[in-house]
């Protein structure tokens, strides 16, 4: 039974370590504060604000995937998780970019 508690099944999610969680928490906090500060202070141009908040969101997304969800390609199950995740991303991009693209064209054709 002692052996059992030493080797917890991780279901492909990697070893649980406090340091990695702390790192994720601190990094996400800083990025969140940065994004809110940029919008609230409103000193940059619109383009710059866009870049900062999108960059912050994407970075936080990756940090959460790696630090909290512990996506990795180290074990076979980890790789299966990543593969299904990549497939989902493809569908998401199709749905979101596709909708925006189609509706933008419709909007353009109706208004002009």
């Amino acid at each position: 039974m002692t052996d059992h508690s030493l080797h917890q099944p991780d279901y492909g999610t990697g070893q649980k370590k406090l340091g990695i969680y702390l790192l994720g928490f601190v990094a996400c906090s800083i990025l969140t504060l940065l994004a809110f500060w940029v919008v609230m202070a409103d000193t940059l141009t619109h383009g710059q604000i866009f870049a900062v908040i999108y960059g912050s969101a994407c970075l936080q997304f990756v940090i959460q995937l790696v630090c909290f969800l512990r996506l990795n390609t180290l074990t076979p199950q980890g790789r299966t998780n990543v593969m299904s995740f990549v497939f989902t991303l493809v569908i998401l991009v199709t749905i979101i970019a596709g909708s925006l693209w189609i509706m933008r064209n419709m909007n353009y054709n109706m208004m002009h």
């Binding site: 199950q77 998780n81 299904s84 989902t88 569908i91 749905i95 979101i96 925006l100």
Partner: peptide, 26 residues
């Protein structure tokens, strides 16, 4: 391990639900 993978797939379908709602919102 198989069960957890199944739950992971559920989360992935939930991503698609939210993706559709985000697309609508945008």
């Amino acid at each position: 391990a198989t069960d957890v993978f199944g739950f992971w797939l559920y989360i992935m379908t939930d991503c698609i639900l939210f993706g559709s709602l985000f697309a609508t919102f945008l």
